[in-house]
C-alpha cells in the first residue's frame, strides 16, 4: 500500500546547481524487510557514480527505484529537477501515475544484468523499437541513430542478428546501444558484467569507458568489479543495510576507507580476487 506523502517536498528543484538525480528520504520495504532506509543521494550532471556493497545491501534497488520499475514506500526522487516518483496535481505533489511515469522514464536509460534484449527482434530492431514508438522518430532517422550507436559499441556488423545468435558480451553491447538510442540524460548499469564470461567482460567495460570519456552523460553503476569501479568512477558509494555507509572519490574509498564495514567488505573482496 502506498503511504501518504508525509513531508512537503518542492514541486521542482530550482537554483544555481540542480543535481541530475536526487533521492530524498527514500524508503523501500518488501514486507518487513527494509531494503532502502530513508536514502539521500545526489548525483550531478555528467557524474559517474558507482555503487558497491555486499549482496542484499540495496544497491540494485537504488537503480530499480530510479527507473520506477517498482514504487517506493516513502520519500521522493527527482530527475533533472522534476519529480520522478510524484507529479504535480492541483498545486500539490501526489504519487505519479503510469502515464506520467512513462514520460519521465524517457529521461533514463537502463542496462540490465541479463540484458533483457527482445529475443524476437534483431539487434537493430531492438534499438529502433522505442525511438519509433515512444519518441515518434521516423524510421529512417531511428535506423540512422541506431546504426551510429551500434557502430560505436562495435556491433554494426551484427545489426541483423537475433539475440540468440550473439554472445553475452555482444548482447550487452546491443543493450547499451538500445538504451542510448533514447538519448537519456541518465544511464543506469545494473551489474552489467555479472552474467558474462570473464573473457568478454572487457568488451563491455571498454564501451562504458568510451561513454565516460567522450560523453557528458550522468551514470549510475552497480558493479562487483572493484578495479573497474576505481578506475572509472568520479565517486564511489558503499552501501550497507539499505544506507550509504561511506562515499567519496575512488582513491579515498579504496585507498583509505574510514568505516570498519567498508574495510571489511573491501578486504574480503580483494581476498577473493
Amino acid at each position: 500500500m502506498k503511504e501518504p506523502v508525509q513531508k512537503e517536498y518542492p514541486r521542482q528543484l530550482e537554483g544555481e546547481k540542480v543535481p541530475m538525480v536526487r533521492f530524498r528520504d527514500v524508503t523501500k520495504r518488501y514486507g518487513d524487510l527494509v531494503v532502502l532506509d530513508s536514502l539521500d543521494l545526489d548525483v550531478d550532471e555528467g557524474e559517474m557514480v558507482t555503487i558497491i556493497g555486499p549482496s542484499g545491501s540495496g544497491k540494485t534497488t537504488v537503480l530499480r527505484m530510479l527507473m520506477a520499475l517498482e514504487k517506493i514506500n516513502s520519500g521522493i526522487i527527482y530527475v533533472d529537477g522534476q519529480p520522478m516518483t510524484h507529479m504535480p496535481k492541483n498545486g500539490a505533489l501526489t504519487w505519479a501515475d503510469e502515464k506520467y511515469l512513462r514520460r519521465q522514464r524517457t529521461n533514463i536509460g537502463m542496462c540490465f544484468q541479463h540484458f533483457n534484449l527482445f529475443p524476437h527482434m534483431t539487434a537493430l530492431e531492438n534499438c529502433i523499437e522505442a525511438p519509433i514508438q515512444v519518441l515518434v522518430l521516423n524510421k529512417k532517422a531511428a535506423v540512422e541513430r541506431a546504426e551510429g550507436l551500434l557502430d560505436m559499441v562495435g556491433m554494426l556488423e551484427k545489426a541483423g542478428e537475433h539475440p540468440s545468435r550473439l554472445s553475452g558480451g555482444q548482447q550487452q553491447r546491443v543493450a547499451i546501444a538500445r538504451a542510448l538510442a533514447m538519448r537519456p540524460k541518465v544511464l543506469l548499469f545494473d551489474e552489467v558484467t555479472s552474467a558474462l564470461d570473464p573473457e568478454v567482460i572487457g568488451e563491455v567495460t571498454q564501451v562504458i569507458r568510451k561513454l565516460v570519456n567522450k560523453h557528458n552523460l550522468t551514470m549510475l553503476m552497480v558493479t562487483h568489479q572493484m578495479g573497474f569501479a576505481r578506475e572509472i568512477s568520479d565517486r564511489v558509494c558503499f552501501f550497507y543495510d539499505g544506507k550509504i555507509e561511506e562515499q567519496g572519490p575512488p582513491e579515498e574509498i579504496f585507498g583509505a576507507p574510514q568505516s570498519e564495514r567498508t574495510q571489511q567488505f573491501l578486504g574480503a573482496v580483494l581476498e577473493a580476487t
Binding site: L69, R102, R103, R105, I108, F112, E129, V134, A179, M182
Partner: peptide, 27 residues
C-alpha cells in the same frame, strides 16, 4: 515471458498496448 522483458519495455517507456502487442504476445 521473463520479467526482464516487462522491465526492459518499461525502461524504454513503451505504452501498455505496445508492450503487449510488440513485446509480450509475440513471445
Amino acid at each position: 515471458v521473463p520479467k526482464g522483458q516487462w522491465e526492459a519495455a518499461l525502461s524504454l517507456s513503451l505504452s501498455p498496448v505496445r508492450t503487449y502487442s510488440r513485446i509480450i504476445i509475440p513471445q
